[in-house]
Simulated assay, not measured.
Amino acid sequence: MRSVLLVPLFWVTSLQASWLPSWFTKLFNDKKLNERYTIIKPIKPNFLEADFTGDKINDIAVQIVDKTNKKRGVLVINGGTNKHYIFGAGSKFASEDFDDTNWLDGWSLHKDKVAYKTLFDTGGDISGSKKVKISHVAISIYAIEDGSELTGALIYWNGAKYVSIHQGE
């Protein structure tokens, strides 16, 4: 398990201004998200930027940790609407059964128009996969074991809301 370096809030805030787009940092603070969450950058890239919703305006995803429960998650702020969405960090993950991404070793932009959702039987064993159409760029988060992606989730906008699908073991 990785350790998290906790630094004084004023230092984190000044770091956020230096490596994140200013509009994102301003919204993070204006929405008072900085009171509950700390933006962390345990893996590279430090943030993901793409048009996740198809509105032709880039959105930003960062990794966060809840200051109270220390659970990790992903925060997305949509550039066009300025709405924010939290996956994990103590909140139920979209379409999944977990609320902490402490297992996350890597993330990337998924630009393919197709993904495969892992299916499980009632006993929890993998029973196959289902092809899923993805209309916009998605966020792929995953655990790594022996240098390969082992398991993870794909977070994507389905036209009305963010959902996720389980991928891998």
Rank of each mutant, 00 (worst) to 15 (best):
F28I: 08
G54M: 02
F93E: 10
D146I: 13
G152T: 14
G90F: 11
K32R: 07
F28S: 04
S95K: 13
A89G: 08
P21V: 08
N29W: 04
D121Q: 00
P21Q: 09
V4D: 12
T118L: 01
A160Y: 05
A115Y: 00
D112V: 05
A50S: 03
L119S: 01
A153I: 11
I39Q: 00
V132T: 00
H166K: 09
K70W: 10
G79Y: 06
N78W: 08
L6V: 08
T122W: 14
D121L: 01
D66G: 12
Q63I: 09
N46L: 08
I60T: 03
N69V: 11
Q167W: 02
E145C: 08
V4Y: 04
N158R: 00
V7W: 12
R72I: 14
L20Y: 05
E49A: 04
D125Y: 12
T13G: 13
D97E: 14
D125M: 10
S91I: 13
Y142P: 11
K56V: 10
K26T: 15
T151E: 12
I40N: 00
S22E: 07
Y85D: 04
A138C: 11
I126E: 06
K26C: 09
N46S: 13
L104Y: 05
H110P: 14
K117L: 02
S148R: 15
G88H: 12
K111Y: 05
E149D: 15
K111T: 14
